[in-house]
Amino acid sequence: MEMKWEGVMPAVTTKFTRTDTLDLEMFEVNINAQLNAGVSGIILGGTLGEASTLTDEEKNTLIQETVRMVNGMVPVVINIAEQTTKGAIAAAHKAEIFGASGLMMLPPMRYKANDLETVTYFKAVAKSTDLSIMVYNNPVDYGIMVTLDMFEELLSINNIQAVKESTRDISNITRMKNRFGDRLKILTGVDTLGLESILMGADGWVAGLVCAFPAETVAIYKLAKAGRIKEALAIYRWFLPLLELDITPQLVQNIKLAEVATGLGTEIVRAPRLPLSGEERKRVLKIIEEGVKTRPKPTQI
């Protein structure tokens, strides 16, 4: 399926049963909600997907089942977060075999590669596959900044086509647009900069709270792109306290708790993660409950 790096692409959570197996039934409930809301793609295996806790067999199952569930409606994108070039190439090959349309790629994990090593890593994986690639640029969390000069080199490879822009520097979108135009598609990766990034020219939004609130997330994107800024802003202002749940170390627990409130998931996480408890649980629940209570009506979306 042709990969278009635009629109809202949820980084979906992985659902588990109480016996710590994949909960594919609830997972499909969420995927269908995303599709019904009009998302442009599904991204598997990111931080929200608890990919670091999944076995290879579970990852294979998730890819194949998601491809089956979407049934060609939208592309399926696989996140690659590997420690070695060899491992990343193998993961890309597996994604291609199982029907993925694109890859979201982090720099090498654990080892803090220098600029040359990082560029060489991305190029090697890109040359090994026909899949379209979005580079995940998140120096805040992963310690490696992919600079504009590095992107200049990377864009010599045709299937490196997009960036998940998570530097938290909103002006970086303008820098990229000025330098690369439409050659590099830009998707914001920070929920609390979603609308701002779209207004600055981002082509899409890799979203987290969309897992619990798909219609509202897609509405903000579509309204902003249509120039209906006042309407987009009204929804976004309601949404911001919820979006802030995406920028903490417990984002998985937070978003899964929000999914419970909207009927799109459970709060079961895989150890070492634990469900929220105590005062933090009360704080997050208060935010979610207020958000659900004041949620925009469908006629406002």
Rank of each mutant, 00 (worst) to 15 (best):
V210N: 05
L131V: 02
D23Y: 07
G72K: 02
T266R: 15
K123F: 15
E58L: 09
N30M: 14
M1D: 13
L251P: 00
M134W: 02
I43C: 11
G49A: 07
G143A: 07
I133Q: 07
I173A: 08
D23V: 10
K256A: 01
R283L: 13
T147P: 07
T13L: 12
N138H: 08
R270W: 12
A51M: 06
V12E: 06
L62H: 02
Y111V: 12
T47E: 03
G204Q: 02
F180Q: 08
T13W: 11
Y121P: 04
V252E: 04
K293H: 00
N30L: 02
E152K: 15
V74N: 14
M69G: 01
A88F: 12
P139Q: 05
G41E: 11
A224M: 10
Y121H: 15
K282A: 13
M145S: 13
V119S: 02
G87F: 05
T294C: 14
S156H: 14
V125D: 08
N71M: 13
L199W: 11
I144V: 08
L44T: 10
Q34M: 14
G99T: 01
K222I: 05
K293P: 01
D149S: 07
D203C: 03
I43T: 07
T14Y: 10
I235M: 00
K230F: 00
Y142V: 04
L187N: 05
K15W: 08
D56R: 14
D23C: 07
Q250L: 12
A90G: 05
I43F: 12
T53N: 15
A95M: 09
L106C: 15
E231L: 11
N71L: 04
Y142M: 04
A126Q: 06
T21S: 15
T262Y: 07
G208C: 15
R283T: 15
L48D: 10
V252S: 01
I220C: 12
A95P: 08
V76A: 09
I220P: 02
K164F: 03
G102S: 10
G87Y: 07
I170V: 14
G72D: 04
I247P: 03
L240T: 10
V67F: 14
K86W: 15
G87S: 09
V125S: 13
G38D: 12
E2V: 13
Y142D: 00
A33M: 05
G265L: 03
I255C: 04
T17Q: 09
K59E: 13
K94I: 10
S171W: 09
T19K: 05
T129Y: 01
I97H: 13
L106Q: 12
R228I: 00
E65P: 05
N36H: 12
Y142C: 04
T129S: 02
G102C: 00
G46Q: 14
T55M: 09
A234S: 14
N254T: 05
D141L: 14
N114C: 04
M176Q: 08
E6Y: 05
M176I: 13
K185E: 11
S40L: 02
